[in-house]
């Protein structure tokens, strides 16, 4: 029992990442009808926003501290970050410590801008082109973005820690009445899960309860009619693209402490997210979220030692296997809309 709970918990954080990326992909597909292979790159850019902010906070000036000496007896050089100068000792240290959560604020405008530029500059010209061309051009864009990041940040993963308060694990088992140290779960993963839940709920609430969201939903159902009503649907869809980019970017920002970002993390997630979208059903937002969590949890179950002993290698292929089975049995995926890419 405790093992099962542990696996469900383990699946949640990866599932959250899948769900967030898949949600953005589905938003773009559902509104603009574009298959965006560069979405993984947006996730990666988000992650590097966090890295950048953390680096910026650590820009320091060097001061010679006369009171202390190094091992040769010379006066010690001390690096003092400017942030500490400006905000004082404790506040400055806290800001540096909280770089990753603060990067959320930093990433939102950047991601929305990147999304706007992408949509207006490139994707706009591909609405009328076939899906294969959209896949190819965004695939090319993904390569370009990934190489640009590689040029500036190098090829190695860059570890960026979570704030001090969220390091370490807490004992989830004792809360449920199990023995101590049976179910240990890192705090940050829990944070990630709640963060993802809030973002997902936010996107759904935005689409469901605002006038803007209503127009967008109407546009997803029938773009032409909404246009005929005198609503500038293209502009709203552009904003939705920016929003989807922001969702992917935020997923990336918060994922940084879980696994150090490198330039190809986007591609690694992209392939799986596409599988998630297809399993959930093209164009279905709840489907994308459901499939994201489902596949994340399935993946972590498949990596249990008992399961691997029973079916060797299953942990490597489970997601693809599920995708193949679902695609062949349910033409629309789990919750796909009728008439959306059903061929």
């Amino acid at each position: 029992m405790d093992a099962i709970i542990l696996q469900i918990l383990n699946g949640l954080d990866k599932g959250s990442a899948y769900a967030l990326i898949a949600l953005g992909l589905t938003l773009i597909f559902g509104t603009l009808g574009v298959v965006n292979f560069a979405h993984g790159a947006l996730f990666m850019i988000g992650a590097f926003c966090a890295v950048t902010l953390s680096n910026v906070f650590q820009i320091s000036r060097t001061v010679i501290d006369e009171t202390r000496t190094d091992f040769l007896g010379n006066p010690l050089k001390v690096e003092i970050p400017y942030v500490v100068d400006w905000f004082g000792e404790s506040a400055g240290a806290a800001i540096i410590d909280w770089a990753v959560p603060l990067a959320i604020l930093f990433a939102i405008p950047i991601m929305i801008t990147v999304g706007f530029i992408m949509e207006r500059g490139l994707i706009k010209h591909f609405y009328k082109r076939p899906h294969a061309d959209q896949i190819l051009v965004t695939f090319g864009l993904a390569i370009v973005l990934q190489e640009v990041i590689k040029y500036f940040y190098g090829a190695n993963p860059i570890p960026t820690p979570a704030p001090e308060a969220f390091r370490g694990s807490f004992d989830f088992g004792t809360m449920l009445g199990f023995e101590a140290n049976q179910i240990l779960y890192p705090y940050w993963r829990l944070v990630y899960f709640f963060f993802a839940a809030i973002i997902i709920a936010g996107v759904f609430a935005f689409l469901q309860f605002t006038t803007f969201g209503m127009v967008v939903r109407a546009g997803m159902a029938d773009r032409e009619t909404v246009g005929l009503l005198g609503i500038d649907i293209d502009r709203r869809f552009t904003i939705m693209f920016g929003l989807a980019a922001a969702v992917a970017g935020l997923a990336g920002v918060m994922y940084v402490p879980i696994s150090p970002p490198n330039y190809h993390m986007g591609m690694d997630f992209l392939v799986l997210s596409f599988v998630v979208v297809v399993v959930g059903g093209m164009g279905s937002l709840p489907g994308a979220v459901l499939a994201g969590f489902l596949l994340g949890i399935l993946e972590s179950f498949a990596s249990m030692r008992e399961v691997i002993a029973f079916i060797p290698g299953i942990n490597q292929v489970i997601i693809y296997l599920v995708a193949v089975v679902i695609l062949l049995t349910l033409p629309r995926g789990l919750m796909g809309r009728k008439g959306v890419m059903e061929d």
Partner: peptide
């Protein structure tokens, strides 16, 4: 198996098969 679907589903199916072969060849 893959040709039972077309369009992007075909792409995903072939991708899934290739990734499965890669993962299995690499481990089991």
């Amino acid at each position: 198996v893959s040709l039972r679907r077309s369009g992007i589903y075909f792409s995903i199916l072939t991708l899934a098969f290739a990734q499965m072969s890669f993962a299995l060849a690499y481990s089991v």
